[in-house]
Simulated assay, not measured.
Amino acid sequence: MGSTTMWERWDSMLPDGTINPGEMTSFNHYALGSVAAFMHGVIGGLTPLSPGWKKIRIQPQPGGTVTSANTRHVSPYGEISCRWEIREDKLHVAVAVPPNSTAQVVLPGLTEEIGSGTKEYVVDYEQDKRWPPQPFKHPFMMPQEDTFVA
């Protein structure tokens, strides 16, 4: 195996940025796809409701320190997009639905079915009160009484 480590043999990208020439090289890992699916479906808010994206749900879910996003998907019917931004306790959303498609737009205080075209929304937005999360204090981190066994 020469001077390569086990990690280098099984990973696709080598520490110097080159691609591993071995047989196990693949960028088609679920770990990479799951991050992209989360970003498109949750942060960007685009998910299919029927095969081929003929019917779409547009439901961006802002949270934490993410205050804007812009995502798009090229479906068999054309480009679907959702761009959103939080400004002064308002959620500003712009959507595009391709021809011969429909979308269910779900925003705080609003659910609407729309056809093809573009549409903009401005709705009230209230930051999640659970943010920022409080640190978890494990029982072993709590102050303990100092006792000695004689």
Rank of each mutant, 00 (worst) to 15 (best):
143 P>T: 11
28 N>A: 14
92 H>G: 02
10 W>P: 01
44 G>S: 13
9 R>H: 05
111 T>L: 01
134 Q>G: 12
149 V>T: 15
53 W>Y: 13
13 M>C: 07
74 V>K: 15
107 L>F: 05
131 W>M: 05
11 D>M: 11
96 A>M: 04
59 Q>C: 12
131 W>N: 04
41 G>Q: 03
124 D>A: 13
127 Q>Y: 08
131 W>P: 00
76 P>E: 14
54 K>N: 09
124 D>I: 03
130 R>F: 10
51 P>T: 12
58 I>E: 00
5 T>P: 10
14 L>Y: 11
34 S>E: 04
126 E>W: 03
46 L>S: 01
71 T>M: 10
116 S>G: 11
63 G>S: 03
5 T>G: 12
17 G>D: 02
104 Q>W: 06
53 W>D: 01
84 W>L: 13
150 A>D: 15
16 D>P: 06
7 W>Q: 12
38 F>P: 09
131 W>Q: 10
110 L>R: 09
29 H>A: 07
126 E>G: 08
141 M>K: 07
6 M>K: 08
41 G>F: 02
82 C>P: 01
126 E>R: 10
140 F>C: 05
75 S>V: 15
39 M>A: 14
113 E>M: 06
132 P>A: 04
53 W>Q: 00
148 F>C: 08
108 P>C: 07
105 V>K: 01
132 P>G: 07
19 I>G: 00
129 K>G: 07
69 A>F: 09
66 V>A: 11
73 H>A: 14
57 R>M: 13
134 Q>D: 14
64 G>L: 04
131 W>G: 02
138 H>E: 12
54 K>C: 05
54 K>E: 14
60 P>S: 03
49 L>Y: 05
43 I>D: 00
17 G>A: 05
21 P>S: 06
21 P>C: 04
25 T>Y: 00
86 I>R: 08
124 D>K: 11
80 I>K: 01
26 S>H: 03
70 N>A: 15
11 D>L: 04
12 S>L: 08
58 I>Y: 02
108 P>L: 06
141 M>E: 07
27 F>W: 14
41 G>L: 03
